[in-house]
């Protein structure tokens, strides 16, 4: 039985003057514990697909099922990380990380302790009473990760969560996110246009072609790379090989 099943998803945006088909015939199965990357040029509907999987928008046609339930009804099983941290500036770090639990009504002393432990694991226990604006970009994105994990989602959506960070912070965070998700055996979908990031972090890369967005090709990451942390994977000879392969594929997309 598959964990996440996406079947024949089409999505078209309607405006007064036009119809834009963002996604066309997307069918995809994701296993539990798998890390998938959606790679592709901008405008290929990656974020749209993520929003559909998260149940934020309804597809024009097709179905998305998480553990055989439609995503609308299993809202609390999904966590979403955005390009920026979107911590609420008027709340303290503690209030921010407990927000999800408070909203879905599962804030108990157990879940609270769990969240605070997560924060401690990220090395941020000392900022618990600070306000977000006192923190650096990397720290804020780590807090956002804690906020996302606090509700113990089964499926994590990462919508270019590292794109607003400087390179060094990005590498460190990739390692942190990757190992954290592996430890918790979480299933994750990462949207990115960074080939290197996709190779270093994922088990499988789905390459999208634009207008309308459809699945162009799937790359399975070899086990040698999967077992390494993102940082070390980047130095592996197979990494470069795969990078070239995906690069060429992207180039051919541009030409066609």
């Amino acid at each position: 039985m598959d964990f996440l099943t996406i079947k024949n998803v089409h999505h078209t945006y309607f405006t007064k003057s036009s119809m834009t088909t963002a996604l066309s015939d997307i069918t995809l199965d994701v296993n539990e514990g798998e890390f998938i990357s959606f790679l592709g040029p901008s405008g290929c509907g990656k974020t749209t697909l993520l929003s559909i999987i998260a149940g934020l928008i309804e597809p024009t046609s097709g179905t998305v099922q998480l553990e055989n339930k439609t995503v609308k009804t299993s809202k609390n099983d999904i966590g979403y990380m955005l390009q920026q941290d979107y911590l609420f500036p008027w709340k303290t770090i503690e209030e921010n990380i407990l927000l999800g639990l408070k909203i879905n009504g599962s804030l108990t002393s157990t879940t609270r302790d769990y969240s605070l432990q997560l924060l401690e694991k990220m090395g941020l226990a000392h900022v618990i009473h600070s306000s977000p604006k006192e923190l650096s970009g990397g720290m804020r994105q780590r807090v956002a990760l804690v906020r996302t994990l606090a509700t113990e989602p089964k499926l994590l959506m990462l919508d270019e969560p590292f794109s607003a960070l400087d390179f060094q912070t990005k590498l460190k965070l990739e390692d942190l996110v990757s190992t954290t998700l592996k430890n918790f055996n979480k299933t994750a979908i990462l949207v990115t246009h960074d080939i290197g990031e996709a190779i270093a972090m994922s088990d499988r890369i789905i390459l999208f072609s634009p207008s309308p967005g459809r699945i162009h090709k799937t790359f399975v990451i070899p086990n040698e790379l999967k077992s390494l942390t993102p940082f070390h994977a980047r130095n592996h000879p197979q990494y470069t090989e795969l990078f070239q392969k995906i690069w060429k594929e992207l180039e051919s997309l541009d030409e066609s």
């Binding site: 609390n76 966590g79 955005l82 920026q84 927000l99 909203i103 879905n104």
Partner: peptide
């Protein structure tokens, strides 16, 4: 208000 704040909340089931 930045709609992404609402996105964060909607994902939590708000």
């Amino acid at each position: 208000v930045d709609p992404n704040y609402l996105k964060v909340l909607y994902v939590f089931g708000a």
